[in-house]
C-alpha cells in the first residue's frame, strides 16, 4: 500500500459507510478531512464516468496534487469502494493496482464477501455505518497484504 491511502465505502446517496486510513505513513490529523474532500469531489467524476463505461474498476479517475483516486463501482447496490493513494512510487502503485484489481476479481471474494455479508445481514440497515470490527480488520489486512 502506498504511504498515504484512504479507503472508503460510499453507499447510496453518497453516504460514507466505512472509512479507513490504510496508509503506512503516520496518520495526520489534518489530512483526514482533506482525504474526505478529495474522495467526495471525485464522486462527481465517478458519476460522470458511470455513464460512459461499463467497467467496474475505474483506475485513477481523479487526482489532487499527488494523490490519486481509484474507484470500484459495484453493480448491484450502487455502492462505491474508493481508494485514495499517492503515486510517489510508480512501480509500487502499479503493482498495487494490479493487486487490488486481482483482489477484486479473485481474492476479493473475501473482501466482497465480507461486503456482501454486511449487506445481507438482516440487522444491517443499508446506508448505515459499517461498524463491524471484523470487517475493519479484514480490510486493513488486505491493505497490508497489497503492500
Amino acid at each position: 500500500m502506498a504511504s498515504t491511502a484512504c479507503f472508503m465505502i460510499i453507499s447510496k446517496n453518497d453516504i460514507p459507510i466505512y472509512e479507513a486510513e490504510v496508509g503506512t505513513a503516520p496518520k495526520k490529523e489534518e489530512a483526514a478531512h482533506q482525504h474526505q474532500f478529495i474522495l467526495h469531489a471525485a464522486l462527481d467524476i465517478v458519476q460522470d464516468l458511470a455513464w460512459t463505461t461499463s467497467a467496474m474498476f475505474l483506475k485513477a479517475i481523479d487526482r489532487f496534487n499527488d494523490l490519486v483516486v481509484s474507484v470500484y463501482v459495484t453493480a448491484a447496490v450502487h455502492t462505491r469502494l474508493m481508494l485514495l493513494h499517492d503515486s510517489r512510487n510508480d512501480d509500487g502503485i502499479k503493482s498495487f493496482f494490479q493487486e487490488v484489481h486481482e483482489l477484486y476479481i479473485k481474492a476479493s471474494f473475501t473482501l466482497l464477501t465480507v461486503f456482501v455479508i454486511i449487506l445481507l445481514n438482516p440487522l444491517y440497515l443499508p446506508g448505515s455505518r459499517v461498524t463491524s470490527s471484523h470487517f475493519d480488520t479484514k480490510v486493513r489486512a488486505l491493505a497490508r497484504r497489497s503492500e
Binding site: 474532500f37 478529495i38 467526495h40 469531489a41 471525485a42 464522486l43 462527481d44 467524476i45 458519476q47 460522470d48
Partner: peptide
C-alpha cells in the same frame, strides 16, 4: 464546475 452540465457540485464545493 457549478456551471458544467451536469453541475459538479462536489467539485464546486471542494475548490
Amino acid at each position: 464546475y457549478l456551471l458544467a452540465k451536469p453541475p459538479m457540485l462536489r467539485k464546486y464545493g471542494f475548490h
